[in-house]
Design a protein around this nucleic acid. Sequence first.
DNA 1: GAAAAAAATGTGTCCGCACACATAATTTTA
DNA 2: TAAAATTATGTGTGCGGACACATTTTTTTC
Lengths: 356, 356
Amino acid sequence: MNKPTIRIKDIAQKANVSIGTVDRVLHNRGRVSEEVRVKILQIIEELDYQPNMIARTLGTNRTYRIAALIPDGTIDPYWQESQNGIEKAGKELQIYGVQITQYRFNQHDVQAFIDQATALAQANLDGILVAPVFYRESLPFFEQWHALSIPFVLFNTQIEESNSLSYIGQDAFQSGSLAGKLLHYGQPEGCTFLVAHIAEDIANSAHLLGKEKGFRAYFSQQPALASSYKVISADLKKPGDISFFHQLDRLLDHYPDMKGIFVTTSKAYEIATYLQHTPERNIRLVGYDLLEKNLAFMEEGLIDFIINQNPQGQGYWGIQFLADHLVFKKKVALRKNLPLDIITRENLAYYLEAAQ
Amino acid sequence: MNKPTIRIKDIAQKANVSIGTVDRVLHNRGRVSEEVRVKILQIIEELDYQPNMIARTLGTNRTYRIAALIPDGTIDPYWQESQNGIEKAGKELQIYGVQITQYRFNQHDVQAFIDQATALAQANLDGILVAPVFYRESLPFFEQWHALSIPFVLFNTQIEESNSLSYIGQDAFQSGSLAGKLLHYGQPEGCTFLVAHIAEDIANSAHLLGKEKGFRAYFSQQPALASSYKVISADLKKPGDISFFHQLDRLLDHYPDMKGIFVTTSKAYEIATYLQHTPERNIRLVGYDLLEKNLAFMEEGLIDFIINQNPQGQGYWGIQFLADHLVFKKKVALRKNLPLDIITRENLAYYLEAAQ
DNA sequence: GAAAAAAATGTGTCCGCACACATAATTTTA
DNA sequence: TAAAATTATGTGTGCGGACACATTTTTTTC
């Protein structure tokens, strides 16, 4: 039942050569006659040889330098979570010689991004994990890395044709559809829903629009719903300011049957703050991310559901994918879609627990 | 920035002894003078020595034998998933010398369980993972294993005071509350909900009752709900049989305002089959587990939400915990609560993907 | 106080693999 | 065809640690 482990030595014996020769074909170091090479390859196949990665990392004492280019977590707790995930993966992979350096930039400062991305080029890296929040400004760096043959993984924001090794994140469109389902399920009667983008540069944020598209598609694709539900969207500025409240006042006045709001960013708490003062409207609220402020409002019942974008998981898997590629020489998927976790008061605790 | 790794050799040098002596104090093998022992311990502390587990597993060529005592997956797809999770963990841990043998029993046959649990005792094991679906019959084996100092981990079904190393699973009560929330959210108007236990020996299944308790608590704990929602429960037999349909007929006749059903087992599809014929009632349905049959009905819209008990994850983590204890000598949590994943048509794909 | 016993400490090999280096076999060159 | 160059193959050491065994030091014993 327990097949014995196959070692290089076993292959060498079976092929009547020394382990050095086997080693050479395993690593394509050349200097092996074609005849022997084929024979060894065949035996490897036959015996289903699986190199012992443990021993390998012990043997080659090499290290892998990975840079993580991400927004500063001290400014936004969302990115703090990503940093945690990156550090978690870093700890797990330390024994395999993986060394991670984080290059952090202010997510509202394009120049800071450019500076960090430039600084990172000095470091003689084996791999890069990047959250490309600035679309346009990212492209030249992608080209540069690609020219230098440094593999890089994107996360959080997808950019097509970037030549990246992989993308880790969620499907924005599907995420919007899910939000549609959640609001619809809670308001079976037909009404108006608002898609609220809060304080983001929409034009440069493709995934926010993807969410809106998915949300609208949920209703338009089912003829029965298309007639009874109306979807509007708004680009709200200056949360916290009094003008923010006025914008909402106007929208609610204009659409008296508005019964649900889908916030495409992690700022659902800004809307919840407003709704606190108009409880009689009984508006359903769905947003993103397990921020403290969102959780507090969920506890109070003002936010019904939160879709978890799992920033920690994104960081974690981003590093894991790079390690799979660099250290373990595994093929990695071009894309990893993290699950769209639905969080509500009753199942919240376990997601927080799992994030440890 | 990158502190050099501390090895046994470094400690030995600093203490002016040989690596053999350091090794002896590291493993409490005795035969070291107290004076030297203290000195070495102090240096270990000071240098924050972290043994290289990689090298350690290479050095000690020992293997760890783990048995998995679980219901047969060929009878029930739910348990097939658990087996997959166990095998997945087994693959990952193979290089650390972990060997897993599965002991499978028919989940409806107490004697089969006893036979397998007895057979397993012959095997000279280092650890056991068990799904104790038979409460009473499990207890003597727990005692036996405890007496033999074989660490064991429970999953799926919790049994207090079992002396187990850990329990992996979900919180049944909270799971029921979550179901309550999902049905309530979809029927804001007040109505009757049915808790359906299908074809299980309720008396011997504490966690089914836990789910019902949690469900009822959701409504009774909020005074506003307690008055407008009524919760009934039923123990339904012989699914697939015509009598099963009759039982449901009677319940629906008796409670014309029944607007939602919570199925505590993975057999929501049995109810969905019935509801197909009475679409006009518009009854919400919440159940458990990503079985093919459930997914088909979810696709059709007859099942609204499924709570994922993640049998694969339970098996996976059960083995991981045993390995953490045996191989890596880590302290493991007494309990690991897996998240209560809410699955609906719109986010289903990613959970199936993640299960690969 | 020397031999025997016990305690303390040191040394060497192996785990599976990578890689530098040594050696053997073959081909090229003059 | 012998020396030189090239190609093919074999050997040895180290990675960090475990463990068996060897050796040295200290303590008993008579």
